[in-house]
Write a protein that binds this DNA or RNA. Structure first.
Lengths: 246, 246
DNA sequence: GCCAGCCAAACTGTCTGACAGTTAAATGTC
DNA sequence: GACATTTAACTGTCAGACAGTTTGGCTGGC
């Protein structure tokens, strides 16, 4: 472990890269305990603070966890779906938010991916998935919802659809597409009329999933995509008009 | 910025969470310079080393970059597609590798997502996408390729397909599904016969993309999925037999 | 023999103070 | 005015210290 590989200029980055490589390659198995900070400092011939910075980098990526006390230290961490899911959502949201990705592009990607779930969801949906979808549709029909709450319920509805596909890997991949897009979706203002339309489409989607009609569900998703795109265009046009005027 | 929020026990984690929140919420815009480490240490009333650990955590997530020298410091980093893409790949590979996800599950997710690209790719493919696909098919037919090289070419082929869809968000989301699965795919041994079969399917896929036949391409992908699943099952069965015997 | 309570050891987390290296801008020099 | 030089504001690294936490072994009483 004494070799300090090539590229990065900073020692702490190099050391982090070294250990990361050992973990990713499987040379350090899950739950393996790394040497103590003092030992690592000696092995890499650096100060303990430098080792600590390296370990914090790895901790930030959930590659290791640290425990205090005797026989504590840094352990290779099993990346759980829950952690990966959360990181996926925030990273996607950040990517979309910081690069001002066109709404159309993000929307197209999101629905393309969601359509990929439709056949599996129709085939495997369980009663509780349907129940969640119905409940969220019902919630969306409540008067007095803020746009944000409406969007949150929208996400929960689609999340149930994805879950219904019964494939955790798919669920993880879609986290970014569905939940990571929420900040973008939040920028849309939903009139009563547009809410009604969306709710109708959601209800139809639930029906088709219940009827195990995968391709029908995919078609419904396509309609929802077009409608969402239209809505967004209207909002953007209005905003532009206001800007030009005010 | 003096408030240290709630949950995590460690100061450096708390401070990192504080700053992260400020970035994600947009309160700190892209390319904004954070206060110097000494100033942050004063504001949070901790030592500089603690601040440094917090900053390293953020750097590991590409939320900030640091520059040395006068007027250097930590700057809010724009998360580029390339960075996000890379993180996506390693995180997916890690998730799959550490949770010994069933090959069938990962494979199903991967092809479901890839089929989602087919219609868009067929519609928008440019000459260079087709050229890349053809070139990789050709490379795959070379004799003497190791399984790893064959897999790498396979990934490049599918990557071209995804790129052809012309949607960077989709491309980013699929990075995990396609490239992140490579370690799992590498576990399959490809006989000459199975390579020939895969190459034939790839060629057909390229044909259909060229012919702008999206649904045909999706069907071909389904065939490739079945064949890959069969191959994997055979490999797993053989491996089991060898284990039982030896 | 057994249990409670205590203590030492092995860790991580944090602090202090120092110095080296790097870079942009201010300053001086011709 | 162009060019070399200093200076100041940073980050990166180091060394040594101490506090807090947890485990395991030890000790003494019963």
């Amino acid at each position: 472990m004494e070799n300090a590989s090539q590229k990065p200029r900073d020692l702490s980055a190099r050391i982090a890269a070294d250990i990361r490589e050992a973990i990713v390659s499987g040379r350090l198995p899950v739950d393996e305990r790394l040497p103590s900070e003092a030992e690592l400092a000696e092995q890499f011939a650096v100060a303990r603070s430098t080792v600590r910075e390296a370990l914090k980098r790895l901790a930030a990526q959930s590659l290791i966890r640290t425990e205090r006390g005797a026989f504590g230290g840094a352990f290779v961490n099993r990346l759980s779906y829950a952690e990966a899911y959360q990181q996926q959502v925030t990273q996607s949201a950040l990517l979309l938010g910081m690069n001002d990705v066109a709404f159309a592009t993000a929307c197209e990607a999101r629905f393309a991916l969601e359509r990929a779930c439709a056949p599996l969801a129709a085939e495997r949906r369980m009663p509780d998935h349907l129940a969640t979808m119905r409940a969220e549709v019902h919630r969306q029909a409540q008067p007095g919802l803020t746009d944000q709450t409406f969007c949150a319920s929208d996400v929960a509805f689609h999340r149930a659809l994805v879950d219904a596909a019964g494939n955790p890997v798919l669920g993880y991949q879609l986290a970014g597409a569905v939940e990571g897009m929420q900040p973008l979706m939040n920028m849309i203002t939903f009139t009563a009329r547009s809410r009604a339309e969306i709710i109708a489409i959601h209800a139809e989607l639930a029906d088709r999933i219940e009827a195990r009609d995968g391709s029908g569900a995919a078609e419904t998703l396509s309609r929802l995509e077009s409608y969402t795109q239209d809505l967004a265009q209207t909002v953007i046009a209005e905003r532009r008009a206001r800007h030009a005027q005010g």
